[in-house]
Amino acid sequence: MAVRGRRDRSEALPLLAAALRSLGVLRESPVAMAGAAILLFWLAMAVLAPLLPLADPNLPLEPLRPPLSVSADGTATFWLGTDIKGRDVLSRLIWGARRVLVWAGLATLAAYLVGIAMGLVAGYRGGWWDEILSFVANLLLSFPVMVLYIVVITRIGASPLNIVLAVTFASAPAIMRIVRGLVLDLRTRDYVLAARARGEGALWIMLVELLPNARGPLLVDACLRMGYTTIALATLGFLGLGLPPPDPDWGAMIAETQPMGAFAGHAMVFPALAVSSLVLGFNLLADGLREISLRD
């Protein structure tokens, strides 16, 4: 009986259930496995950061020490060296992973909530709803994304919440168009007609009949979009518009070291590698998921 109860609850969260099930499916694609491995590595780092024997990421120690050097008192090793302010690069990298994953995740999630809502309404309601929502989406999509970020952030200031807002603003229209396209196709299916014929409301049809069937393409897109958002956060950080200091931010780490480039290459290369590997992980996972979904 207990098992039955759990099953029923998982029906109520079809998206989550689908996500969990698709994890098992990853074994079919080596590409997806590679992507998932990279992501799991960063995820583990991010989650375990407080437990790892790391120096305080914001504490100035000895400036510009090269990788693998030992501290003056001989008690600590700077595995990846220190930056110009003397902070431990490894520690900042790992705490930075925690920060980027949290905020990129939240920003993508927010963009998805808005984009899905807009797409469902535009696709299912059609008519004027569609005209207006599509117009807004096209307007936003006609701006270069980075310009949009910079405009939004410089207007409302660089705080984590504002970055979530900016990403939502820039990504939601694209998500809306994907959802809208899927819904336009799905809404003609007999099961949607059957739901209407038994008097279901629009909300039920959109959330229970339509959305779960759009999950495949959305899952792939969500992975790609996490990658884009990671790049966006790093770029904003690099431009000084990102997550506020002194907490570590990969983009800001590169920017801080840049004036001293030749002397502190390691403090620049490692965060750059971190950004690339995380984005690569998301892209590989997205590719693999797409491959798996096409094979069925």
Binding site: D190, Y191, L193, G199
Partner: peptide, 24 residues
């Protein structure tokens, strides 16, 4: 339509592959 009318006038659809929602 009032709920009893909806319940009393139902439909069976043509396409077996579409008549059920594949997600549930």
């Amino acid at each position: 339509r009032p709920p009893e009318i909806v319940a009393h006038l139902q439909m069976i659809f043509q396409n077996p592959s579409e008549t059920l929602n594949p997600s549930h």
